[in-house]
């Protein structure tokens, strides 16, 4: 055990670098995924049919094809067309598109889950489509979105380990390296623990946001699935 711990101590700087890469992929991927999810989630409820079709096609494509293959495309195929990107950026874009596609469904579902009376109340005040979404529907859908986003973010954090496939020395890679100097069970246990801790921190952050958002709507802190605005 002491050898394991000594090896771990020696590996700390490298593990730190690995965590840094994983965090870059997580934060960058989450940001891109958020933007993609909002854009395609809103397009999916657009009154213009072609925009809805576009959203369906894009979402189905990125949800339906493997993240690893998407990553290979971005990293190995795109350079054949003259588009080559840094590996971290490639990872960020692939993760962002893939998880953003799932996120678009979260956005669409949350918006549709806002009580119908809220849409009608806004229409009865003659609000335009944009005002209605921005001022009334979105702030209520946001509460519902956060719990969906929380799930996706945890999945995205663990999903960053695919970066290994394009040679990035992320946390997953460094854990595998650690195994050379320690027992297998020790190295991979450390791996589980570190990913868990990262996920815990992000998940906690989103839960705080969700609690605050729920309080603003006057909802109890508990159940995330009560439909917003139902009793008002």
């Amino acid at each position: 055990m002491t050898e394991n711990l000594e090896a771990l101590r020696d590996a700390l700087p490298r593990l730190g670098e690995g965590v840094s890469i994983t965090l870059q992929l997580t934060l960058g991927g989450a940001l891109v995924a958020f933007l993609v999810s909002v854009v395609f989630g809103l397009l999916s409820i657009s009154p213009a049919a072609p925009l809805r079709w576009l959203s369906t096609i894009v979402v189905e494509f990125f949800r339906g094809t493997s993240l690893v293959v998407q990553l290979f495309w971005l990293y190995y195929v795109m350079p054949l067309f003259g588009v080559s990107m840094d590996a971290v950026l490639t990872g960020v874009i692939a993760l962002g598109l893939n998880y953003g596609a799932y996120g678009a469904e979260v956005v669409r579902g949350s918006i549709n889950a806002v009580d119908k009376g809220q849409w009608e109340g806004a229409t009865a005040l003659n609000m335009s489509r944009v005002t209605r979404m921005r001022r009334i529907i979105w702030p209520q859908a946001w509460v519902l979105m956060l719990s969906g986003y929380n799930n996706l973010l945890v999945m995205l954090i663990k999903g960053t380990a695919v970066a290994l496939f394009i040679g990035l020395q992320d946390l997953g890679y460094q854990i595998d390296e650690l195994r050379i100097d320690t027992t297998t069970i020790f190295a991979y246990s450390i791996g589980l623990l570190l990913y868990y801790l990262i996920a815990l921190v992000f998940s906690f952050g989103l839960r705080v946001l969700e609690k605050r958002a729920r309080r603003r709507l006057g909802l109890p802190a508990g159940s995330a699935h009560a439909s917003a605005g139902a009793a008002l």
């Binding site: 109340g121 335009s128 709507l217 605005g229």
Partner: peptide, 23 residues
Amino acid sequence: FQHFNLFPNMSVIDNVTEAQVHV
């Protein structure tokens, strides 16, 4: 409406002023 449809994301007064300002 029968079920009021007040906006839960704002205070009572904001419910009454929101559309005055934005519409």
